[in-house]
């Protein structure tokens, strides 16, 4: 009985590998990228953005080995597609002024209420979790960067 159950689990596992994963494409050549086009962004901000945000909110995703195995691949594909659709730093310069202001306000709020980075992401990527100092760095940068758009 137990043997049969394990056998079924194994077959299901093999079968779900056939589901097309559709991992979003990765590109490291993004001429409209936020960091590339704004050299005055402080280094500590750049480090945090790359370390805690860019995996989902840019075209520069670094996929772990289990991104190629179902069912984890399906979750990763869904989250990164959603993340990029909401905010993609690789397309930053294509945003209008009001879209940038909206995104920066969203960033500051999402960090303040601990919605981002997502818990399921920092559970595995421990160094992507933000301590209070790092949160403050991002929040005050986002607010200042937004006001500078209107000067």
């Amino acid at each position: 009985m137990k043997k049969k159950f394990l056998y079924i689990v194994f077959v299901v596992f093999i079968l779900i590998q056939l589901i097309p994963g559709g991992l979003p494409k990765v590109s490291f050549d993004n001429p409209d990228d936020l960091i590339i086009n704004n050299k005055d962004i402080p280094e500590d901000v750049v480090t945090i953005l790359r370390n805690s945000c860019y995996d989902c909110h840019s075209n520069e995703s670094h996929y772990p080995w289990y991104a190629n195995i179902s069912p984890s691949s399906l979750l990763i594909a869904r989250d990164i597609n959603e993340g990029r659709a909401k905010l993609n730093f690789s397309n930053w310069e294509n945003l209008s002024k009001i879209e940038k202001a909206g995104a920066l306000d969203d960033i500051s709020d999402a960090i303040t209420v601990d919605e981002m980075p997502m818990a399921i992401y920092t559970l595995i990527h421990r160094n992507a979790a933000l301590n209070n100092d790092e949160k403050e760095v991002i929040i005050s940068w986002a607010n200042e960067f937004s006001e500078r758009l209107f000067e």
Binding site: A101, L104, D105, D106, S146, L149, F150
Partner: peptide
């Protein structure tokens, strides 16, 4: 900046 951000959202 903040106000326009809120209004856009």
């Amino acid at each position: 900046g903040k106000l326009v951000g809120k209004l856009h959202r």
